[in-house]
């Protein structure tokens, strides 16, 4: 069962995404700020991290940057879900290593499709490197 970490300071969004993803068979852990997310990421490797950008203590861009600079989490799929819609921030998120960007309000079905696609990509990459070795 794929592990997903959801980081958002809106408790309603956290609960809603957790319920939607649980229903589809994902194992979901939630964090309500950047600091909590960092603590969780130190102990567990997740398949996907879904993060908001505007977060207390450490913002979403910091979460993305830190994930990509950490060897254990380098291959984690990162989806940024935020109401921030300006081009600079979106570009910055992708530059730091985000795999996908969804603007709030989101469509639940679209989020699920993107998660599945990221996991499929990740699996095919892993298979490719295993064969190569």
């Amino acid at each position: 069962m794929p592990n997903i970490l959801v980081v958002d300071d809106d408790d309603i969004m956290l609960k809603a995404i957790k319920n939607i993803l649980n229903k589809d068979g994902f194992n979901v852990v939630t964090a309500s700020d950047g600091k909590e997310a960092f603590e969780l990421l130190e102990h567990t490797v997740y398949d996907i991290v879904i993060t908001d950008l505007m977060l207390p203590h450490a913002n979403g861009l910091e979460v993305v940057g830190k994930l990509r600079h950490n060897d254990a989490n380098r291959n984690v799929g990162i989806i940024v879900v935020s109401s921030v819609g300006n081009e600079e921030t979106i570009t910055e998120a992708f530059r730091l290593g985000a795999d996908d960007y969804l603007k709030k309000p989101i469509m639940a079905g679209e989020l699920l499709m993107r998660i599945r696609k990221l996991i499929a990509n990740k699996n095919s990459k892993t298979q490719f490197y295993t064969k190569k070795k």
């Binding site: 809106d10 309603i12 709030k104 309000p105 989101i106 469509m107 639940a108 079905g109 679209e110």
Partner: peptide
Amino acid sequence: DTLIRYRKNFRGEVG
């Protein structure tokens, strides 16, 4: 108020 908070986060079928 709760429904409005949800609507701010979800569109599409859920919205």
